[in-house]
Design a protein around this nucleic acid. Structure first.
Lengths: 267, 267
DNA sequence: GCAGGTTACGGATCGCGTAAAAATA
DNA sequence: TATTTTTACGCGATCCGTAACCTGC
């Protein structure tokens, strides 16, 4: 199976439409159609149920979509890490302010390790870290639960209670405590990748509430936002994550540093 | 990066010789040489330090070898699992007699699970299980430590003391107990994939000793072999393993069954 | 008729093999 | 001189795009 054909397949499987997929791939429909047919014939399996009105995945197509994405990620990761070998640096992905104040002590400890490399911080949006790790764009990441663990190894380095951020003018602001059930469905609109943005939406009443680590309360004080304790909510856990398959010495050293920084903080 | 070029690269990196690699790939040397040069130019990185007398990997080549193997495995796994979707069965890889007697109760429990699929047992050689899982030729495996954990999730389901298998005529047979140090380097000749074969070699004196789970003592009684307790050796641990990335419901059910079977045995 | 996938065909690119060349010991 | 990698060159296969075709609403 050629990786090019697999890339085509994933595009079609995501769009469920040959025309849009071809546009996304920057090619015309016929070669795409033939490439998919050839892939099906090579594998000896039907991947799509086609009708002029509707393209859908067969069960075999479902598995190829899931497994194929992983394979393509691995391929991209191999290329990226190879290109970055020369520079010999470590990329740490995290959401802005997503370090629970541990970053400084973590980096200080890390630099003392003989295996340490220069560290580049890559700030990214909500939940973008797992993909950065899997595609080789980052080597380590700080992530908060919940996130997609597939293909990652993780180590919890910090836990803290949760608070609910609600609009000060809203009905929830008067409560002494809140439970996860009080918040309703935690729907975060697409395109929101920043905490300040989310808090603004809450002020505006566009989002009802958000459950956040309590350290946010001190870091983002706002008149329009009230933080309410959530004693019943599971604690917010911060973890350090890295690709399960490739733990370099430099990565291992950073994980060690994180563990020690966590111990110092908690103990 | 095309998967074909990556396959060529891995072949050359393993042979460290373009001529042999080309032979292994069933092609001639020039297109191979050009494919590698093109790969280097695409990545913008030198992968091999070449001289007519000696080809060696650069640091970038080292990372591409490690990461590239994983990517190619993922690709093969995607193809295999896709082809096997139609049959909807689960392949369990294990070494013959490598189940510590747990297999029956495991399968019985599994069949009771609503997520269960028909199970095919695939017997394989020493330590072949991890690769079968990573290339999609198997879905779950029973493995004994030590084995290569990369890319796998595992759960220990059984521990038992170790015994040393030594030649009855040899000097070690008279000892009441043995330590790991007494056994010397545990060198197993290539091509030995079977326990009976190994025991024969020990009888013949070709192999000095082997440290094995104690349940082997009852299963392979032989006049020429004496089993000696090893109270100081770490216990032999049997684990169930599956690909870290893709845990299907059927796989999860088998892992659950294994855990329950282990509890029943130990409790 | 129309939207969308598939075939048909011509041109360009890519990959491969044979043959010759360059490089190192 | 011998071994190994690299260039040179010609052929075939593959991939792509335009145009025509087929199918279900």
């Amino acid at each position: 199976m050629e990786s090019r054909a697999l890339g085509y397949f994933v595009a079609v499987a995501e769009e469920l439409n040959f025309t849009r997929a071809a546009a996304r791939l920057g090619m015309s429909v016929p070669p795409l159609s033939r490439a998919i047919r050839r892939l099906e014939s090579d594998l000896g399996v039907t991947l799509f149920a086609r009708s002029p009105q509707r393209v859908s995945l067969t069960p075999a197509g479902e598995t190829l979509l899931a497994e194929g994405r992983l394979a393509l990620d691995a391929l991209r990761a191999a290329a990226r890490r190879t290109q970055r070998t020369e520079t010999a640096s470590l990329i740490l992905a995290m959401k802005a302010d997503g370090d629970a104040g541990l970053l400084d002590s973590l980096l200080t400890r890390y630099r003392a390790d003989p295996d340490a490399l220069p560290v580049t911080i890559r700030l990214c949006g909500w939940g973008a870290q797992p993909r950065l790790l899997l595609t080789g764009e980052a080597d380590v990441a700080l992530v908060t639960e919940p996130f997609d663990h597939t293909g990652l190894d993780t180590e919890v380095i910090h836990r803290e209670p949760r608070v609910a951020a609600v609009a000060s003018k809203g009905p929830l602001a008067a409560r002494a405590t809140l439970t996860p059930g009080d918040l309703g469905d935690p729907v975060i609109p697409d395109g929101v990748t920043d905490l300040a943005q989310l808090l603004t939406l809450i002020e505006m009443g566009r989002v009802r509430a958000a459950s956040l680590p309590s350290s946010i309360r001190a870091r983002y004080p706002r008149p329009g936002i009230t933080y309410v304790d959530m004693p019943d909510a599971p604690p917010a856990t911060l973890a350090i994550a890295w690709p399960a398959m490739s733990r370099s010495r430099a990565t291992a050293a950073l994980v060690r540093a994180a563990e020690h920084a966590a111990l110092e903080r908690s103990g």
